[in-house]
Design a protein around this nucleic acid. Structure first.
Length: 613
RNA sequence: GGCGUUGUAGCUCAGUUGGUUAGAGCGCCGCCCUGUCACGGCGGAGGUCGUGGGUUCGAGCCCCAUCAACGUCGCCA
């Protein structure tokens, strides 16, 4: 079982209103003692049956819940029919609501005070024996769940998650509507603009040899909406990126996409964090702080070893290079000689109870994070132990205790390396410690902003300068002068919203002057010809009085995942792709008839041999 | 593409150091049962242990390869 959010979201009754032509029909989760005496019709699935031979209980289920129906042998034909019922059969039951006999109420059930003795039963459809039991506590393998998604979706957990998703999306729409935003749709068949992620391409039949691309995001289109004078735009937008899926991302995903004219960075932050505050309050019934913490990118890396820090717990990365300078431990003493390195200490509360084997395992883990090794000391009651204990004399031990706040019973991990690598390794170890100590609670929500990213970074493979966000991001005011002298030192007007260690999304103030935008493209190594070929329409638009503008996009799937206490976005998407980007229910992607390829002017060069299974 | 974990009945899993006929719970089928709600009782069916190869007198277990799912790195403007 996954951990649950503390939000008490329940799936809403489908409707309390009877059908127009069937005034008796009620949902399965709504009946209570006040309905006693009413004649009703319950339509739903057979959730469970308890056949006592002379008396049959059937739990009838729909999205709203469960009502117990009883079948008595005195109703001959109805009873005989009830004996044939099996799980997931679809039934329509008529009867008059009655109070359950004293002592047989079920407090675990919302409708547990009452039951419906069946006067009539209609079997609307039979079900094959399902491959897994919807009512079971055990969760089938995800592969099975996705193959039979229509059955998986009947499980209360998925119904709850999709309900939360609906409420969150509705809250987002309400919020932006109240703040003067227009929801505007943008096309899904657009022009491929290289750079960034791999595009999904759609071949054109009418224009053989040409392709549309599915949008990686509506970025350029929303900027053009701003140039079009729409002022405030939002969209629940589907985005497509042909990259390998993970637990928190898949090839198609949904963003709340926002853009505004005549705004500065703080205006965007205020609107966006307001939207999250509104969502948490109205969809989840929870309050989040009135102003969210803000960290610079440099600070986030220094203190948490990540540009998306999990602030549900402290355990910060602490610099201790100075304490090792000139000391007995040569490796750290050497590292301490340069500011380009870091020696980071991580306190592990209670860590001295770990065995040598445990520390070895953590060391192995650190190596998978890219560490060359891991040093540690354990502050055991009977003295300091651990891999570098023999280099830690009393004064150093005292200084380390002072710096880290470590006490007897704790351990301290040390990561020493070039600053960037050391920070990242220590940051991941921090998450591991937090995880093991149970500090990453699924029902805690710690938002923060990360600001002050560099505008450019150096691509490690090619050595070329590339953008760190996207090429439309504006530099911080007054930093244009660094463009030629020291581009990597330029700070961007770019911001990330982070929740519990996940990047919910990012945004920026955009370049709104064509001349400057061209300068950025050129700095990224594009020629005038390339700029005009790929972005000509956009460059032209910028020349016709483009207003200053900026915005942001947040990942709905991740927001809902965290709100639901889930660890995979696939559990909050009705029909997700698996890790190989396949839809295993539909069996997509799949081949197409030769004629379809012919129409498109396409020819398949080779198909990899089909795996023998 | 790399690394890790997993793969045994429809589902969830156990299976000792390599040793006779591979087990459990749920589900399924049959019979019994009038107050259950994970109903209960009795009986039964259901497995080429992912696939291929190897080591061995003997492989669910060891080795190699491969496929798949999940996680992760690369990748994700």
């Amino acid at each position: 079982m996954r951990a649950r959010s503390r939000t008490n979201i329940t799936t809403s009754p489908e409707s309390r209103q009877p059908c127009v032509d069937n005034p008796l029909r009620v949902s399965c989760g709504v009946l209570s003692a006040s309905d006693v005496g009413k004649t009703v019709e319950l339509d739903g699935w057979v959730h469970r049956r308890r056949d006592h031979g002379g008396l049959i209980f059937i739990d009838v289920r729909d999205r709203s819940g469960i009502t117990q129906v009883t079948f008595d042998p005195s109703k001959g034909e109805t009873f005989a029919l009830a004996e044939t019922l099996r799980g997931e059969d679809v039934v329509s039951v008529r009867g008059t609501v009655r109070r359950r006999p004293a002592g047989t109420e079920n407090v675990k059930l919302a409708t547990g005070e009452v039951e419906v003795p069946a006067d009539g039963l209609e079997i609307l459809n039979r079900s094959e024996t399902p491959p897994f039991v919807i009512a079971a506590e055990e969760e089938p393998a995800e592969e099975v769940r996705l193959r039979y998604r229509y059955l998986d979706l009947r499980r209360p957990r998925m119904q709850r998650n999709l309900t939360v998703r609906h409420k969150i999306v509705k809250a987002i729409r309400d919020y932006f509507d109240e703040h003067g935003f227009l929801e505007i749709e943008t096309p899904n068949l657009i022009k491929s603009t290289p750079e960034g992620a791999r595009d999904y391409l759609v071949p054109s039949r009418v224009h053989r040899g040409s392709f549309y691309a599915l949008p990686q995001s509506p970025q350029i289109l929303k900027q053009i909406l701003m140039i079009g004078g729409l002022g405030r735009y939002m969209q629940i937008a589907r985005c497509f990126r042909d990259e390998d899926p993970r637990a928190d991302r898949q090839p198609e995903f949904t963003q709340v996409d926002v853009e505004m004219t005549f705004v500065r960075q703080d205006d965007v932050l205020e609107v966006m964090e307001g939207s999250m505050r509104y969502v948490w309050r109205s969809a989840l019934g929870l309050e989040i702080p009135s102003s969210l913490p803000r960290l610079t990118y440099a600070e986030a890396m220094r203190r948490y070893g990540s540009d998306k820090p999990d602030l549900r717990f402290e355990l910060e990365l602490l610099d201790v290079a100075d304490l090792f300078r000139g000391g007995a431990f040569g490796l750290f003493a050497d590292l301490a000689e340069s500011d380009a390195n870091r020696v980071i200490a991580l306190r592990w509360p209670g860590g001295s109870s770990l065995s040598r084997r445990d520390f070895d395992a953590v060391t192995e883990l650190a190596k998978t994070f890219g560490a060359k090794g891991l040093a540690y000391i354990s502050l055991a009651p009977d003295g300091i132990k651990g891999s570098i204990a023999r280099f830690v004399d009393e004064p150093l031990a005292a200084a380390l205790r002072e710096r880290t706040g470590a006490q007897d019973g704790d351990a301290i991990l040390f990561v020493g390396d070039a600053a960037r690598g050391a920070s990242e390794v220590a940051g991941r170890l921090r998450l591991e410690i937090g995880e093991r100590l149970g500090l990453r609670k699924p029902d805690a929500f710690a938002f923060c902003w990360v600001l002050g990213f560099p505008l450019f970074e150096r691509d490690e493979e090619s050595g070329e300068i590339t953008f760190s966000h996207h090429p439309f991001t504006a530099p911080a005011p007054g930093q244009e002068a660094l463009f030629d002298s020291d581009p990597l030192a330029i700070t961007a007007q770019h911001y990330d919203l982070v929740l519990n260690g996940y990047e919910l999304g990012s945004g920026s103030i955009r370049n709104h002057q064509a001349e400057f935008q061209r300068k950025v493209f050129k700095r990224l190594g594009l020629t005038d010809e390339q700029i005009d070929d790929r972005f000509g329409f956009f460059m032209e638009a910028l020349t016709y009085g483009a207003p200053p503008h900026g915005g942001m996009a947040l990942g709905i799937d991740r927001i809902v995942m965290l709100a639901c206490g889930e660890t995979s976005i696939r559990d909050v998407i009705a029909f997700p792709k698996n890790q190989m980007a396949r839809d295993v229910m539909m069996d997509a992607p799949s081949g197409v008839p030769d004629q379809a390829l012919k129409d498109l002017g396409l020819q398949i060069l080779s198909i990899p041999p089909k795996p023998a299974e």
